[in-house]
Amino acid sequence: MNKMISIIIDGKEINAEEGRALLWVALENDIFIPNLCAIKEKARPSASCRLCFVEIEGHPRPVTSCTQTVADGMVVKTRTPEVDRLVTTAFELLLSDHRLGCSKCPKNKACALQRIAKERKLKLKPKRLNKFVKDYPIDDSVDVFVLDRNRCVLCGRCVWADHHIAKVGAIGFSQRGIKRKVSTFGDKLLSDSSCIQCGECVKVCPVGALSFKENHKDKV
């Protein structure tokens, strides 16, 4: 274990192990920082969701807290106008590409997007940006779970779980840019892939893109 150091987040003094990622130190001390793509066990964070911005004294601009390791005496603010602006825009961008209809979503009330909206007082239906129309067919070809890409936020947690927890390699990212999506090799149905239906990917999905079929019963 590294030596313990002390940092200040939002005025609160916190003891933490030197070298750990700021995001996890904050979350473990009940300080909420929005995040979707962060995985504690992953050595090098993907830093792709761009939600965990904070301001650190000495840095000219907000930085992502998942990529920042804590150092003694660090002074962090999780809410400043600059941070809020970036988080709001990132959140609105993600929502502009996310199929809503929470009441019909198996993740309703357990959804990371809903949590962020509540904590940061953000709207789930922002008016500033147009909504992109996504119409991916829902893949319910396997017995245990359903993959609905229209609700996917491309955080990559499922892909990581599939590769590092389940060690199966049934899914990965395909395409690029706006077409980027989670898919099986050759973009086949899950039932035609090497998926073993272990459900590890479903457990880590922060939104309603991957859900167990048993949670669907009271929906639709």
Partner: peptide, 12 residues
């Protein structure tokens, strides 16, 4: 040419 990894570039 955006790779699509991060939110701002992909959607913004």
């Amino acid at each position: 040419e955006s790779c699509g990894k991060c939110t701002f570039c992909r959607l913004g």
